[in-house]
């Protein structure tokens, strides 16, 4: 597969702080790449840099083989960017906002009307096109941003939190539109919603302090957890001494507690019985065992240190 986006040692600094630390990677054409990571890990900056919204301090970015800085005029026709916060003009209607950007992209009027109607129907905002932006909720504005990005039919679509502010129905519509584009457009998006990431991805990149900490398919990332399970046992009363005693069990990894619930990770189910054996003096109310998902992988306080 050919590369749609290529980064070569791309770095971004802000006030002496490294936001992106010499990142290098390529993205295949038509794939969906999800960027996840803690707050301030560099996800949004990476998207802004990819879209040409901000210039990197060093390194090169190529969109379909063209340098994003040197060939800006051509690359900005190929890339569209959806920011996290809506940036629509509050004194214009949704349609006027979208049409203005479409006109700057020199999209013929009839095609523009057709695309606006089509995408706003798909994203459920057709009824809001004539509304002034200042009267609309952030969720509708966010969907309008997606329509604005899609009307230019970009080859690369970068989205910062695609479903932020959007209700459940809207989220479904957005995900459907993104999944529909799989294979046709390259989509790179950042998200904190791990359920959404699990649904829409060909590849997941976990960012940490401006570096790529992990990179691969969901299956590959979960394989790094070495078949760990997450266990949760709810006791009638869990005192500090019992918690310490249970935490000290050799097969227990990254223990934590929330009220009377004792949560830990373990490589096999035996860890669960080891804990129960130690806790004979305490009444057990409930328990659960589950295989590790993306959420646990990202749960830095409880899992990541021990599972990496």
């Amino acid at each position: 597969m050919e590369a749609s986006v290529t980064l070569k040692k791309v770095g971004k600094l802000s006030g002496g702080r490294t936001i992106l630390a010499g990142m290098s990677f390529g993205v295949e054409r038509g794939s969906i790449v999800a960027l996840i990571g803690d707050n301030d890990s560099g996800k949004s900056t990476l998207l802004r840099v990819l879209a040409g919204y901000e210039k990197p301090e060093y390194g090169n970015i190529y969109i379909h083989g063209l340098d994003i800085v040197k060939r800006r005029h051509e690359t900005c026709k190929m890339v569209a960017y959806v920011p996290h916060e809506p940036d629509l003009d509050p004194w214009l209607t949704v349609e006027q906002n979208i049409r203005f950007i479409g006109m700057l992209h020199k999209i013929p009027a009839d095609k523009l009307s057709q695309r606006i109607a089509g995408y706003s129907e798909q994203l459920g905002i057709a009824d809001f096109l004539q509304e002034n932006v200042s009267n609309l909720s952030l969720g509708i504005q966010k969907r309008a941003l997606l329509v604005r990005a899609l009307i230019q039919e970009p080859r690369v679509l970068t989205i910062d939190e695609p479903t932020a502010f959007i209700d459940a129905d809207g989220k479904r519509m957005v995900l459907e539109v993104l999944l529909d584009m799989r294979g046709k457009r390259t989509i790179i998006y950042a998200s904190q919603d791990l359920d959404e990431v699990e649904l829409a991805n060909d590849r997941i990149m976990i960012l940490q302090n401006g570096h790529i900490a992990m990179d691969g398919t969901l299956e590959k990332l979960l394989a790094t957890t070495n078949q760990y399970h997450q266990f949760e046992i709810e006791f009638e009363h869990l005192d500090e001494a019992t918690y310490k005693e249970l935490s000290a069990v050799s097969t227990v990894v990254n223990p934590s507690r929330v009220g009377n619930k004792f949560r830990f990770y373990g490589r096999s189910r035996r860890a669960f019985f080891h804990v129960l054996k130690r806790a004979t003096a305490v009444v057990t109310n409930d328990f659960s065992i589950k295989t590790i998902g993306l959420r646990d992988l990202m749960d830095s306080n409880q899992a990541r240190r021990g599972l990496e």
């Binding site: 879209a51 026709k77 003009d89 950007i101 700057l104």
Partner: peptide, 13 residues
């Protein structure tokens, strides 16, 4: 306050 000019800067002008 609203970064409204930013999407304009991402168009081919």
């Amino acid at each position: 306050h609203r970064h409204v000019l930013q999407p304009v800067t991402l168009t081919p002008i």
